[in-house]
């Protein structure tokens, strides 16, 4: 079931989910056999953005919190990985042994740290921003994100506005993160885990309260729910997942830079959610793939791809009511 309801999932939803997962599973060998290996890194990035967009969807789609600062969590996650890696290299830990094979930092340390710091940032900023509504919430989340953006620009020792290149991917016991195919499947696994978690969450008691807040928060308070806590926790969970996505993005591309948390990135995440379908499980994943691949292909034909992509997106959102996914899976989201 992908919608925020307690009705049984219809067969189109199950079919769509099955086909989607199968497609993502066979994508690497298919790309390899057809000689399109270079697309694997784009597909991996799409998976990572799908994770980030899904986390935004948790608060935006299910919780009704329209945040325009979500890239900040990704940036924090990315910089945690980047800074730890940089520190390790700088302090001489990048020994010949490390250069030969595994990266210097354990992902088991770096990734949880990325998640924890992103969650902490969500907690601190959420306590303030969740007291506002509507346009004010959009602006305050944007303001917090810009603060982080300028903070990282000012970090001269970590590359300032240029960011920094990482020596290698972190190491994970038993898994070779340096292998692009392995890394792809790891990202896919984490994405599916998070989606399963969100699916349980929104249908459990917690999620019913969260979705209720989207519809009419005052009403829930009068029923006896202290709604602030539920919304804050959802905000922190979403921040943490976006932090993980940021960490993965840093590992995948091998660099971090403030551009990762520019406000336009937050806007892109929002477009992915809106384009794919807010408040649906598969929507943001679809949105992430469509947006990233569209960007890539349009960039091949013209450097003014933004001029084309903008209207395309507007049309898509206008005509695919509720997003691409509800249109494809055969049901519009009722509001």
């Amino acid at each position: 079931m992908t919608r925020a309801t307690v009705t049984a999932p219809g067969w189109p939803v199950l079919l769509f989910a099955g086909c989607g997962i199968l497609f993502l599973l066979v994508l690497p060998p298919v790309l390899e056999l057809s000689g399109h290996q270079y697309l694997l890194s784009l597909a991996t990035r799409a998976l990572i953005y799908a994770l980030a967009a899904s986390s935004l969807n948790l608060i935006l789609g299910y919780g009704g919190m329209v945040s325009l600062g979500h890239a900040a969590f990704m940036g924090i996650g990315a910089y945690v990985v980047g800074i730890l890696s940089h520190q390790a290299a700088g302090s001489g830990l990048l020994s010949p042994a490390a250069v030969q094979g595994a990266g210097p930092v354990s992902a088991l340390m770096a990734w949880p740290a990325a998640v924890a710091l992103a969650m902490l940032f969500a907690l601190v900023t959420g306590v303030v921003s969740l007291r506002t509504r509507g346009m004010h919430f959009i602006m305050i989340t944007l303001a917090f994100a810009q603060m982080v953006y300028f903070f990282f620009i000012s970090l001269e020792s970590y590359g300032g506005s240029d960011g920094m290149v990482l020596a290698s991917r972190d190491r994970l016991p038993g898994i070779d993160l340096g292998d692009d195919r392995v890394f792809y499947y790891l990202c896919l696994g984490l994405l599916l885990l998070f989606l399963a978690f969100v699916h349980r969450l929104v249908n459990a008691r917690f999620g019913r309260v969260l979705v209720g807040c989207r519809e009419n928060e005052k009403r829930l308070q009068v029923l006896g729910f202290a709604t602030f806590g539920y919304r804050l926790l959802a905000y922190c969970l979403a921040g943490g997942a976006a932090g993980l996505a940021g960490a993965l993005l840093a590992e995948q591309g091998g660099y971090v830079s403030p551009a990762m948390l520019h406000w336009t990135r937050s806007g892109e995440l929002m477009v992915m959610v809106l384009l794919g379908g807010t408040g649906t499980l598969a929507g943001p994943v679809l949105g992430a793939f469509v947006l990233l691949f569209l960007e890539e292909y349009l960039a091949l034909y013209t450097e003014h791809w933004m001029v084309i992509l903008g209207p395309v997106l507007v049309l898509a959102v206008l005509f695919a009511r509720g997003g691409l996914y509800p249109m494809l899976a055969g049901h519009g989201r009722e509001r």
Partner: peptide, 23 residues
């Protein structure tokens, strides 16, 4: 049904439950 179940939920203990399907 979901409305009323949510209201029932309000009167019965913590709603910080994340796994079990309320439906």
């Amino acid at each position: 049904q979901e409305h009323v179940a949510l209201a029932v939920q309000a009167g019965r203990g913590s709603s910080y439950r994340f796994w079990r399907r309320s439906g």
